[in-house]
Design a protein around this nucleic acid. Structure first.
Length: 492
RNA sequence: CGGGGUGUAGCGUAGCCUGGUAUCGCGCCACAUUUGGGAUGUGGAGGUCGUAGGUUCAAAUCCUGCCACCCCGACCA
C-alpha cells in the first residue's frame, strides 16, 4: 500500500482522515455516514470496552440488552427528549420487500407490509428502557437499578467524520433508577469520575470535568455533567456525558415505587455514555506525522520485536532469541508481537509499527546476539537506545509505564498551555482565532448571550468546571455582572 | 439542505479540453540476490473506465439523466 502522507500542521482534517485509514483503524463503507471499523481499530475499542466494563462492574453495575427499535409512541413520551432527537432519527415503516414486477431482479418495499406503528431506530435508549423499568419497579426494595448496555445507536447526522461523528456508532449507555434525588445525583457524579479516571489513566487524555449550560444539556436531562478534552488543533471534544435525569422519565413512563412509609413516589434517574468517538479523542491527542501513537494501556500490541539477519544461520539464532524474549515479556503480561515475516525489510516494519502506534519496538540482530543487547525504540519520543538484555522484562515494564505517563503529561502540558483567561471581548476573539484552545471568561449566565457568542465566533460554552472558584467579574460579551468564569472553545 | 469535488486494476493516479479501445507508481504472483530505517533485478497476472441512455464508423473522452461517496458550511456526541 502506498501511504499518502499529509502533515498534521498543514491540514489537520486531512491528516486525521489519512491516519485513520493508513493505520488500518477504519474506513468509509458503502453506506453514507457509516464506517467499517477494521480489526486493528476494533481491537483498540475492545480494550477500551474491557477497561470501562471492569470499572462499571466495580461500581456495582450489570450489563443487559434492550431492543434496537423503539415504537414511536414510546419514543415521544418524554417530550424534550423526543424533540431533541426527532430530526436525526431513522424510522422503520415497513417490514417486508418484494420483487418489483416492473423491474425484474429488483426489490421494492411491499406497500402491503406497512407497520401499524413506526419503529424509531434508537438514537439513545431512555424511552425503551424506562418503559421496561416501570414493570421492574414496585417497591423501594427494587431500587436502585444499575444497568449498562453496550450497543449501537443511530443518529442521522448531516455531516460525518470517521469515529468523531458517524451515523451509526458504538457506545455504552448506563441507565440507573434510584429512590432519592441525592442517590441519583451521587450516581451521576460517580460515573463522571469513572469516565475521567478512564480518560486520564487509560487514554492518557486529560479532561476537564464540568456541567453543561442549559443550551448544551442532554434533551430530557435536568443536569448534564461532562468531560471535555482538548485536541492538538485547539478544538475541544466532548468525551463523555453523565446525565441527572431527575424524575422526567419516571413521570413520562409512570415509574413509581412504594416507600417504606407506603407512599407512592416517582423514581429518580441517571444515564451516562461514552462512544467510539473516544477513538477520535485518542488519535487527536497523541498522534503525529509518523502516524498513530498509542498509550501502552490501550495498545493491542505493546511491544513489537523485529528480528534482523542476513544469512539463514543468523536467522535461526536471532529468531530463537527473539522468541525467548517474547516469552519473557509475555510472562509479565505484556502483549508482544514477534514480526518474523520474511518478505519485508526491517526498515519497512519499523515504519509500519510507527504508523500503527506500537509503543515500544525491540530490534534484535546478530550484533546484539554477540553483545547481549537489544535496540529499544519508543514511539512517543522516537528515542532509540541499545540496552543490555539483563533484566529486560523489568526494564520494559518500567518503560511502558513511563510512556503512559509521558503521553499524559505531554497532553496535559499542551492542554494547560491552551487554557487562557480573558477579560475583554477583543481578547476573546483574538485568542480564539490565533491561539485557540479553551478560553476562561466571565459570562452573564443567559442563554441569549451564549447563543450570540456562538453565532459570532462559533465558540460554545464547553462547560462550567466543577472545581470552579467564585470570582466576581463582568460578562466578556454583555458586560453584565458574573460570579464565575466558564470555559469556551470551538468544538468538534 | 447550500457550496465544492471525485468516481479509471486491491490502493493512489494519468488520460477527458482536442473521440481512435487505457498511463504510471505502490501492492500482488514467480525466481534470484537482499535484510541494523520504507530493498533490487528479471519475468508475469490483474480493467464491464460509477450507472442508464444518446451522438458517432468509433466514447474513459462529447451530450442528457441517474446513483454513490468525499470535502467545506448549517445541525449535532
Amino acid at each position: 500500500m502506498e501511504i499518502k502522507k499529509v502533515k498534521r500542521s498543514e491540514d489537520y482534517s486531512a491528516w486525521y482522515n489519512n491516519l485513520v485509514k493508513n493505520a488500518d483503524l477504519a474506513e468509509h463503507s458503502a453506506v453514507k455516514g457509516c464506517m467499517v471499523i477494521k480489526p486493528y481499530g476494533y481491537a483498540i475499542w475492545e480494550k477500551m470496552q474491557a477497561e470501562l466494563d471492569r470499572r462499571f462492574k466495580e461500581t456495582g453495575h450489570q450489563n443487559a440488552y434492550f431492543p434496537l427499535f423503539v415504537p414511536k409512541s414510546l419514543f415521544e413520551a418524554e417530550e424534550k427528549n423526543a424533540e431533541g432527537f426527532a430530526k436525526e432519527c431513522a424510522v422503520v415503516t415497513h417490514y417486508r420487500l418484494k420483487t418489483d414486477p416492473a423491474n425484474p431482479g429488483k426489490l421494492m418495499v411491499d406497500p402491503e407490509a406497512k407497520l401499524e406503528e413506526e419503529l424509531v431506530v434508537r438514537p439513545t435508549s431512555e424511552a425503551i428502557i424506562w418503559n421496561t423499568y416501570r414493570d421492574w419497579i414496585q417497591s423501594y426494595r427494587d431500587l436502585p437499578i444499575l444497568i449498562n448496555q453496550w450497543a449501537n445507536v443511530v443518529r442521522w447526522e448531516m455531516r460525518t467524520r470517521l469515529f468523531l461523528r458517524t451515523a451509526e456508532f458504538l457506545w455504552q449507555e448506563g441507565h440507573t433508577a434510584h429512590a432519592t434525588k441525592e442517590e441519583a445525583l451521587a450516581e451521576t457524579k460517580q460515573m463522571l469520575e469513572v469516565y475521567a479516571d478512564f480518560a486520564e489513566n487509560v487514554l492518557a487524555v486529560p479532561v476537564i470535568k464540568g456541567v453543561k449550560t442549559e443550551n448544551e444539556r442532554f434533551a430530557g436531562a435536568d443536569e448534564t455533567y461532562c468531560i471535555e478534552g482538548l485536541m492538538q488543533d485547539g478544538k475541544a471534544l466532548q468525551m463523555g456525558t453523565s446525565h441527572f435525569l431527575g424524575q422526567n422519565f419516571a413521570k413520562a413512563f409512570e415509574v413509581k415505587y412504594v416507600t417504606k412509609e407506603n407512599k407512592q413516589e416517582y423514581v429518580w434517574a441517571t444515564s451516562w455514555g461514552v462512544s467510539t468517538r473516544l477513538m477520535g479523542a485518542l488519535i487527536m491527542s497523541h498522534s503525529d506525522d509518523e502516524g498513530l501513537v498509542l498509550p501502552p494501556n490501550l495498545a493491542p500490541i505493546q511491544i513489537v520485536i523485529v528480528p534482523i539477519y542476513r544469512k539463514d544461520e543468523e536467522k535461526v539464532l536471532v529468531i530463537e532469541k527473539a522468541r525467548a524474549i517474547q516469552q519473557l515479556l509475555r510472562a509479565k503480561n505484556i502483549s508482544v508481537k514477534l514480526d518474523d515475516r520474511d518478505n519485508m525489510t526491517p526498515g519497512f516494519k519499523f515504519a509500519e509499527y510507527e504508523l500503527k502506534g506500537v509503543p515500544v519496538r525491540i530490534a534484535i540482530g546478530p550484533r546484539d546476539l554477540q553483545n547481549g543487547t537489544v535496540e529499544v525504540a519508543r514511539r512517543d519520543t522516537k528515542e532509540k537506545q541499545v540496552m543490555s538484555m539483563i533484566d529486560l522484562e523489568h526494564k520494559m515494564e518500567h518503560l511502558l509505564t513511563q510512556i503512559q505517563s509521558n503521553l499524559y503529561q505531554r497532553a496535559l502540558d499542551f492542554r494547560d498551555e491552551h487554557i487562557t483567561a480573558v477579560n475583554s471581548w477583543e481578547e476573546f476573539k483574538n485568542v480564539l482565532e490565533n491561539k485557540t484552545g479553551f478560553i476562561s471568561a466571565h459570562w452573564d449566565g443567559t442563554g441569549e448571550t451564549e447563543q450570540k457568542i456562538k453565532e459570532e465566533t462559533k465558540a460554545t460554552i464547553r462547560c462550567i468546571p466543577l472545581n470552579n472558584m467564585e470570582e466576581k467579574g463582568t460578562c466578556v460579551y454583555s458586560g453584565k455582572p458574573s460570579s464565575q468564569r466558564v470555559l469556551f472553545a470551538k468544538a468538534y
